[in-house]
Design a protein around this nucleic acid. Structure first.
Lengths: 237, 237
DNA sequence: AGCTCATGTGAACGGCTTTTACATGAGCCG
DNA sequence: CGGCTCATGTAAAAGCCGTTCACATGAGCT
């Protein structure tokens, strides 16, 4: 709700003052209220106070508006992930988990962006700049995975960073998509999506042999002596 | 394929010979072709050879048709998962992975069902029988997780089966949703979605302390040096 | 001032969803 | 067989949406 619309002084456009921006804002509002399917082009125009034909001066069609929103979403997403990753501070594992939480936070706090990005049904590769934005966002996760992979304990095969990144992305998206959204409309859980994802990531990292000093679940306390940290496939000798 | 009257069977209804079934079939076709958003009630009616108002004798509205399809999808899904799990044969871990693959196979081979179930945007709890079907399907995963949790190594705290089931579900759904569908329209991967998910599940299970030798052999078969028996992502360099 | 082009309007077309009044024919009962 | 009833399908219409097109308007430049 709190968006920087207050300083529209400088950019007074032609008739409306920039309509394009107003349409994007209206679409965001509508999508967050009724989902990307329920959003209508005409409604956005009405909300901006223009005729139903006006939006066509700024977007080829309805899909292009949604794609624009998705692209902005990816940009904001990238920025959020970058901030969460914080170049791996204070330590790689902690920062990595923070990225996962940022993923969930984004899905929850920006449902309009999120659904435009992942649930709108439009092909990712329709717009090349959209795909580029998507890849830039994913690059953050990939970079984080790269750093993490470099930390893999010696004496065992190093996990491919790309694969780790895809795994983390899939976990985050899975949790967000199934349980993450909405105060109401989703399935009920024994724990919060955040805790669920955190536990999942920790177990996963432990499976790769990373020292995960924190406890992986609410129920599981400080679980293992330091000597038994690695998986059964390659004990450090 | 004509859904008209070439099925001269005993089940001839009133005028059309059961229209309800024909509509469901038509909807499945349309959804698999154009996604749940692109599917139109009128098209289904046309494909069934009836007037646009006829479907309203069988479904309250368009959403109820989609919900019907989602429900059937969950039933078929449950059946598929049950079959894949096969009561944990030949061993629990193998059967568990097979369930994950079945998840992906379903998403790929029944995109219409899958998208009606997970991407149609209709609230899961709108229809109580729909939610029940969804929970029955999830119960298979949960039962499998239960069996797996019972096998946890004695030295470690036993992971909550419910949490494991949710983790597996999230992984499977995440992979399926991001990379699983389509010969064309998704992001490009360094490995198949099946392999990606299998590796993810194996790493996860290893993180829980499970022996994850892929071959249905003994659990204690790793007195080999680390790295000889390949990890979940193949041979290390 | 006058030109030009981006921006917005009004009207229109076709399609979709849904409702309403009406038609039809299947199954049943006497 | 005749007639009743109700489920099933039709026709028509209202209302909305996406999209297009001819036309209006006013911003900024010369």
């Amino acid at each position: 709700m709190s968006w920087r619309k207050d300083q529209g002084r400088a950019e007074r456009g032609y008739h409306h003052g920039n309509l394009k921006e107003a349409l994007l804002q209206a679409a965001l509002d509508l999508i967050s209220k009724k989902g990307p399917a329920g959003f209508t082009f005409a409604d956005a125009a009405r909300m901006a106070g223009v005729s139903p034909a006006a939006p066509y001066r700024h977007f080829r069609d309805r899909d292009e508006l949604i794609a624009s929103i998705a692209q902005r979403g990816f940009e904001q997403f990238e920025s959020l992930l970058t901030q969460a990753w914080d170049d791996g501070r204070p330590d790689t594992v902690t920062a990595f988990e923070r990225v996962g939480k940022a993923y969930l936070a984004f899905a929850r706090e920006e449902p309009a962006f999120y659904s435009a990005m992942f649930e709108s049904g439009l092909p990712v590769d329709s717009n090349p700049t959209l795909m580029a934005a998507s890849e830039r966002a994913f690059a953050i996760i990939r970079a984080a995975a790269e750093r993490l992979a470099a930390l893999a304990p010696p004496g065992m095969p190093r996990p491919p960073a790309m694969m780790m990144a895809l795994h983390i992305w899939a976990m985050s998206h899975g949790v967000a998509s199934l349980f993450g959204r909405g105060d109401a409309a989703r399935r009920k859980l024994p724990m919060s999506p955040e805790d669920l994802l955190e536990a999942e990531v920790l177990i996963y990292l432990r499976g790769l042999g990373f020292p995960t000093d924190r406890r992986p679940g609410t129920a599981a306390a400080d679980d293992k002596p330091a000597g038994e940290r690695s998986g059964p496939w390659g004990k450090p000798k």
